[in-house]
Design a protein around this nucleic acid. Sequence first.
DNA 1: GCGGCCGATGGGATCGGTAACACGAGCCGA
DNA 2: TCGGCTCGTGTTACCGATCCCATCGGCCGC
Lengths: 332, 332
Amino acid sequence: MQSVARLAGVSAMTVSRALKDSSSVAEATRDRILTVVREVGYVPDATARVFATRRSGFVAALVPSLDNSNFADTVRGMTERFDAAGLQMLIGDTEYSLEREEELVAAFLMRRPEAIVLTGGVHSDRTRRLLESADAPIVETWDLPARPLGDVVGFSNEAAGAAMVRHLHAVGRRRPGFVGGATNFDTRGAERRAGFKKAARALGLAADRVVLVGRPPVTMDQGAEALDAMLARWPVVDAIACVSDLSAFGVLAQCQRRGIDVPGRIAIAGFGDFDVARCCHPRLTTIAVDCAAIGRAAADAALGALAARKEGRRRRSATVEIPFRLVVRETA
Amino acid sequence: MQSVARLAGVSAMTVSRALKDSSSVAEATRDRILTVVREVGYVPDATARVFATRRSGFVAALVPSLDNSNFADTVRGMTERFDAAGLQMLIGDTEYSLEREEELVAAFLMRRPEAIVLTGGVHSDRTRRLLESADAPIVETWDLPARPLGDVVGFSNEAAGAAMVRHLHAVGRRRPGFVGGATNFDTRGAERRAGFKKAARALGLAADRVVLVGRPPVTMDQGAEALDAMLARWPVVDAIACVSDLSAFGVLAQCQRRGIDVPGRIAIAGFGDFDVARCCHPRLTTIAVDCAAIGRAAADAALGALAARKEGRRRRSATVEIPFRLVVRETA
DNA sequence: GCGGCCGATGGGATCGGTAACACGAGCCGA
DNA sequence: TCGGCTCGTGTTACCGATCCCATCGGCCGC
């Protein structure tokens, strides 16, 4: 910057002002400076800016997986808003692990993010402590946590699980099963399973037909294996609710391979309204959530909190509930 | 840090050393410092460290889409290596747009990344200029560019496209078509299409049966529409090569809906070996690439260049070719 | 004609770590 | 006994922007 200033015959301060367009630079001067900037290919150093302004320009976002169109859509929604606000996203992939989340939070906090967006409402104790002592607005998404750390943008995964069974019941199924991942990782999936069980019992149905296939994320292949395991143990099953559309599609494909009629003999319901659910044959009944809207609302909550801070306003954390909806298609 | 130093009765410098474990701190002193650090919940400021060391600790990585398991795997492979090297990744989603790539490059360069990993070998002029004047090793992936900017880790998409037709020809198909996205965005997809055409002509087959469905990424739904368009225009088509497994799956599902026998009447080949290709029924013939290996090799190339720089060695940029392989399954 | 104000610009301090060097104590071998 | 070495620690300068305040010329109004 000094050298740009020298070349333009002004001080560094004036260059700085010209680059930020803070108007109080004479037009001729500004033009001269911008020409020099372009000629020498000067790119301002964001680090120094952070240092001087005490604003990192970063927002930290943690998702369980990048390779999941639900979370990818949420990230896209966030990017849209944060980009417009001139904030850069630091994206972290927790791989459905609370320890990895803790590591990432610790690493990201060193970068002094201006806001932090998390997925889910369950975190390790150290994560909670770190976040509480961090001086940044926090948003939890994709869930309705019992003890929120700040703002919340999500929905009840338990209610979603319950909605699946109730629909299967409504279309005449009386022996539903559930396919999901191992507990203690994907807590949102675990809540959907809990909702399934509770609602099944409430409807007077058996709630024990549950196949857990291992560490989330549950893949399509694991869905296929899960169908075999389910039928081996409970041959009477007439409907299967799955933790996600991916596993549901695995179940469907395996039914086709085994010549099992869907939905004639077995009905299938998934979660997430992934592309594959909309496109496969027969099309999957599923639960749809507006994932990009979650991202946008989460970003808006964070930006709102930042604006309030800047103006010295007090502001209570809020919860935005994003509705999910049952999409009835051909498999149930 | 000053206050931690005061509380521990040492100088800031000693705290700094204790935190980096640069060994030259007496054990008793270090313990005392670390206790204070834990008690007050001190988190070092990465910005100041960047500033002092002139090393940002960042690596920039640009991918066309996060919601694509191929690129997600590549990112995962990179993360594995960069994490181990203590580097944090700045991930950018170019949305298959060269302009967006340019914006992201400009934004990321302000953060002074220590290395830059790009997807593809086609970039806007300004992007090329920005990157050339940036003082960081550059790696291009997923392609074999004609004019590389630095290291390259990829494969020939043209060869992959050619391999698809040759296989379809080998299993007796003589009237193949191609489904892809509009040109000028997904340049890798366009190269696969070019490879398809070239090889088709070399085999004495018509090469004009091409359906382009619009802006990449091509979705499953668009694959389904593409089948309809293809059959409306060229009812004789007996094989369809697709730019990706997602579109291939769309074609397959639409065939099933229309009662078209696959592979009896129409053979289908995809690209990418996505989960859906491995799991659907019938399973998709496809081209598999070890995407995580691309990520790891790209990170290794970047780290190698950085190491060479540090030791003052000269080092020529290299090209690592990651082999693709045809996976013959049930649809072709 | 002069005080005051405004618009444009410059000067110096500053943000929080770390590199480089300095320094003192204790130890070893000659 | 003393030089030289190692070890542990402190001192100082600095990274590159921006903030705050000072400055200066010119214009306006009284």
